[in-house]
Design a protein around this nucleic acid. Sequence first.
DNA 1: GGGTCGCTTTGTGGATCCAATCTTAAGCAT
DNA 2: ATGCTTAAGATTGGATCCACAAAGCGACCC
Lengths: 242, 242
Amino acid sequence: MTIESDELAPARKTGAALVDDLADRIRNRIMTGEIPIGAQLRQAELASDFGVSRTPVREALRQLQTSGLIEVLPNRGAVVSVPAPWDVREAYEVRAELEALAAARAVRRITRDQIEQLRVANREMYDYSLARSTGTAPDERDHRRSNDLFHTLIASISGNARLAKAINDINETFPRNVSAQLIVNDSRHRDENFREHERILQALADGDAERAAAEMRQHVVDAGEQLARWYELRSSTVFRGE
Amino acid sequence: MTIESDELAPARKTGAALVDDLADRIRNRIMTGEIPIGAQLRQAELASDFGVSRTPVREALRQLQTSGLIEVLPNRGAVVSVPAPWDVREAYEVRAELEALAAARAVRRITRDQIEQLRVANREMYDYSLARSTGTAPDERDHRRSNDLFHTLIASISGNARLAKAINDINETFPRNVSAQLIVNDSRHRDENFREHERILQALADGDAERAAAEMRQHVVDAGEQLARWYELRSSTVFRGE
DNA sequence: GGGTCGCTTTGTGGATCCAATCTTAAGCAT
DNA sequence: ATGCTTAAGATTGGATCCACAAAGCGACCC
């Protein structure tokens, strides 16, 4: 908490920090649906939005391309990738295995406090989605945050940073607003999601690594199947803009 | 005067293709040990080496940074990451889980021909490393290729492109010449590696998914442990250049 | 009236420019 | 000799420039 005047200037980021920051902000716009699937990304527009030149924007786009979130067409710019249902299933199968491993590892390291934290996150998520469905909450972002927290907490408790990163890498491939909306809008999905989380939690609390892994694997595969179905439906529908 | 053949100019790459190509070539230099661990990467040098300007080189470096192969220090350029032993263990634990999944999936899809292909790759690898240890072969690159082939083949047979990519992403984090040298130079490691591959192969041939996964998991964890030990030894030794 | 050719516009992408920063080394003082 | 200050050189990193490619548009020809 220094009163140093370094605070005055917004500490203009530079280099890798700037590029990563730009990538984050662009990714966020996609994750929340602000930039919809299939939309074009104009370098000049992004650059002026963020108050930088096109150079760092291009580097950020290149990163997003590597992660698969966007596709860059030669001389024609970048578009937000439209996930193929089969790709969703493949990705979620991998994610399921990784999160299962995370849950199994977490059993040996989780504390009583952390279990309570997870319980709170799960309860919060349920409350948010209920509020949303009754029209109280304005958007699904709170819900998404709580749901993400549940999973990232377990990943971090696993104590394997690489594992957490691998899981995150896969998640960053698909816009998150879609899966959030699925849970929020469909009461069956909502309840099921809540109960699956509860079961995972119980296994963690019981110290049963085997069961925690199995429950987690099933949970993620289920979620992937829901998401894949949504994209299937979408692609079979006549496109009519966002 | 130049002949009007477009063939002479090697179809100059551009855009993503160029950047990916540069990243590949730089990664290769690191993987083979041509650029050793901890070495500096100068943008201008790489640019002139590859006959391009610094702009695409920087984008390529950014990609390698994201994958973790190099570290970029603000205003001070990039250096090849020096893997920490604990990071190696973590990464290989993840890789083990992924490859185990790949092996389990491969059981249901593998053909008789592919089993034979794997057997050949494994045999080749053994022959290469024997030749190397008796001084016949000049380097470990052939060995590395065969070993990589064994693993990438199984990953691709799994039929899950995401899975193959996830495995590859982890592998690209660590220079490969080290693990190859380990196997080539130590006859105990060499024999063990060969036999572990054989056991995986047998499980695949028997159609036993459970065992294939278990054998593969063990094999990768073992390899990771060897590699981690090597880096431990290295870091505890007084640095004396490469 | 439909299709094709060519011009114009828009945007990407590598090359270049220059400011900012880090490193090195020399100079100066203690 | 040691340590601090400062000037020069090297290198990064964002901004700008310009060549090229692709989509849009209109005129012209059949």
